[in-house]
Amino acid sequence: MRLALFDAARLGVVAPDGGALVDVTDALPWPHDPDPLTASWWRSLCRDFPSVAPALEQAAAAGPARPIGEVTLRAPALGPSKVLAAACNYGEHVTEMHGVQERTLGRVESWMMDFDVFLKAPSSIVGPGAGIVLPPDVVAAGHEVHHESELVVVIGRGGKDIPAESAMDAVLGFTAGLDITVRSAADRSRRKSYDTFSPLGPWIVTRDEVGDGSGLDILLTSGGEIRQSVNTRDMLVPVPEIVAYASSVMTLLPGDLLFTGAPAGVGPIASGEELEMSIGRIGSMGVHVV
């Protein structure tokens, strides 16, 4: 199933071809609250999706379809307790980061070349069509701001110390995300947590359609130029193991997000650019840089 948030945080089920959706908000067993700070229905949906799915499917089959172009898609996330991100999860990206750090820092931070997870601020989330705002202080200091296109895991029931072999049972599904990053000597979480630095979209595809997230093509273009192109089978640490590792550090709660790592091809973005990101079997979204 493809689950979208649109307009005033309404819930929609998207057609398989991505061209239309049906509003299924009224089929939810909880009151609808569009405020991301208090929208507990969203976290309940992430946790209890298997039991709610039949009602959503029935509503989607019976309701009137609306063309995607007639609605405003929102980020498919409301008030996650945390946004986690994996570092150094593609071998070619690890190699390219040696050159990136030499150019932007004048040295290579060896500890940053190892796989790990870190936090991004939930307030950095924006949706499809949003503008990525380059921070004035960062621009004035001459720091590069880079794009990193990634597969993003949406946590379902979550848990603590989740075994890798059952990790996908804790997952709702997947979406596409950009982990926008300032290249400087500042703390990693700070450099990736500016407002608008986590575009997400266009919707969530549940794990029954995508499996464990392996074998998906990721493509990022700017003005038709290919910036990043990779398949998720090239991850050094696959999704179930990322979920297991992250849950060994902190409890994963329903609705939490987990960026799975940047592929090679990261590079600077500049005001006026239009970025288009797509992931096979999920969908595509565009954002612009301001």
Rank of each mutant, 00 (worst) to 15 (best):
G79Y: 05
D195M: 10
A39N: 07
M235N: 06
A15I: 11
V139N: 02
A264S: 15
V52Q: 04
A167L: 06
G272T: 12
G131R: 14
V289F: 05
D161N: 14
S184F: 07
M250W: 07
A140L: 12
Q58H: 12
M235Q: 14
G19W: 11
I125M: 04
V237W: 08
M235K: 10
V154W: 00
S166D: 13
A140W: 06
A270V: 14
T72F: 08
G201H: 00
A246H: 01
A55I: 06
F197R: 02
A55D: 13
G213I: 03
M112V: 12
M97Q: 09
L219T: 15
R227T: 05
V22C: 11
P163T: 10
G106K: 04
F259W: 15
D234T: 09
P263W: 05
G63W: 05
P67T: 13
S51T: 13
H146S: 11
G79S: 11
G224Y: 11
A59G: 07
A140G: 09
M113D: 15
W30I: 01
S284Q: 12
S214A: 15
T232D: 11
V287E: 02
L219I: 13
I279W: 00
I242M: 04
S184C: 14
M112Y: 09
A60K: 04
I180H: 03
G283L: 01
A170I: 01
A121V: 06
G91T: 09
N231I: 10
G142C: 06
R66E: 14
L220C: 06
A8T: 15
E148Q: 14
V100M: 02
E209P: 02
P163M: 08
V210N: 00
D179R: 05
R233M: 11
R233Q: 12
M285C: 11
D161L: 05
G173S: 12
L252S: 02
Y90T: 07
E144M: 10
Q101L: 07
M1S: 13
A86T: 14
A140Y: 01
Q101I: 04
G18Q: 10
G283W: 00
L28E: 06
S81F: 00
C46M: 09
S189R: 07
A167I: 02
G91K: 15
L84I: 09
E276T: 13
D195V: 11
P67G: 13
T206F: 04
T104N: 14
A77I: 03
S248F: 03
G79F: 03
A87K: 08
A186Y: 10
I226H: 07
D35Q: 09
K192A: 03
S189E: 10
G79D: 02
A130I: 11
R188P: 00
R66W: 10
P136I: 08
V126G: 05
D256N: 10
R157M: 02
E148T: 12
D116F: 13
G19P: 03
V154G: 01
P163A: 09
Y90R: 07
E209H: 13
R157Q: 08
E274R: 14
L151T: 01
D116V: 03
P76S: 06
A8S: 15
A65Y: 08
G223L: 09
V287M: 07
G12D: 08
R10T: 08
D17T: 12
T72P: 01
P34N: 07
I269R: 05
V117D: 01
S222H: 03
D114R: 14
V266A: 14
S124K: 04
L275W: 09
I242C: 06
S123I: 04
A4M: 02
T95W: 03
L252V: 05
